[in-house]
Simulated scan of single mutants.
Amino acid sequence: MSDAYIRGAEPADDEALGALDRATWSTLHAVAPRPQPPYPPFFDERHAPEDHLVAERAGEIVGYIRLGHPTPLSCNAHVRQIQGLAVARAARGHGVGRALLRGACTEAGRQGATRITLRVLGHNTPARALYAAEGFEVEGVLPGEFYLAGRYVDDVLMGRSLTQR
């Protein structure tokens, strides 16, 4: 298991998280264009520190996960959605992503959620394997939803219960 410490994000993490986000950008998981200077703050009106968990190793932020509501509707309030996950290249393969994912599931349950969902690009085999290993199942596929790096890529919808495991 990971030797990373998982904690809630703080406003002071903004710069480090922005740098991590830019360093890990890839068409393997990103549908937005590569960020260009001047870089906006990592936290904004839609993504607050309390929406994030961070992984720290030896005092350095090596990963984050963003947890949010999939919609503003009260009939959907029992669901949380993973809206971003990044792990520094040097920390990959050491359980950091798994620790963040488990932390997000725990936090979602603490918030009263009974389900957690996510979207992952079809060609992101490492992420899909991690999610499946943590009990997420494919619940839908939007074929060819994105055109990235010269090819069409599926958008895969995955989810799991937080009350059954």
Rank of each mutant, 00 (worst) to 15 (best):
D14G: 06
V96H: 02
I65Q: 00
Q81I: 03
A88C: 07
Y64A: 05
E45Y: 11
P49W: 09
V141M: 07
P33C: 12
A149D: 15
L162M: 06
R22V: 14
V153W: 02
D44I: 12
L67Y: 05
L157Q: 13
L67D: 01
E107G: 02
T24M: 05
G109Q: 10
R92Q: 15
R57Q: 15
Y147G: 06
R7W: 10
S26C: 06
R115S: 07
L85F: 04
E45M: 14
R110K: 09
E134S: 05
L130P: 01
Q83M: 15
G59I: 13
S2C: 11
I65H: 00
V156R: 03
R89K: 13
G150P: 07
P37W: 07
L118P: 00
G93A: 14
A9V: 07
E56D: 12
L162H: 02
R89F: 14
R80K: 12
A88K: 06
G140V: 04
E50N: 09
H123I: 04
D14K: 05
G68I: 02
Y5D: 09
L121C: 06
A77E: 00
P37K: 07
P41W: 09
L157N: 07
R151L: 13
V96P: 01
R151Y: 08
E145R: 15
G97W: 02
L130C: 04
L142V: 14
G8T: 13
V54S: 02
H123K: 03
G103F: 09
P40S: 14
C105N: 04
A19D: 09
E56W: 08
E107D: 11
P40G: 15
L53W: 03
A132Q: 14
R98V: 12
E139F: 07
P72V: 05
E45G: 14
Q36R: 13
H69Y: 02
F43C: 04
E145T: 06
A16Q: 10
A55P: 00
W25L: 12
A55E: 00
D3N: 14
D44Q: 09
G18Y: 06
G109I: 05
V79C: 02
F43A: 04
R7H: 09
T117L: 07
P49H: 10
A55D: 00
G63A: 11
I65M: 02
A48I: 08
V141Y: 08
E45P: 03
L85Y: 01
V141K: 06
A19N: 05
R165Y: 08
G112Q: 13
R66V: 10
Y5G: 03
G18F: 09
A149N: 14
A12W: 06
A30P: 01
V62T: 08
P126Q: 04
M158S: 06
V141T: 15
Y39P: 03
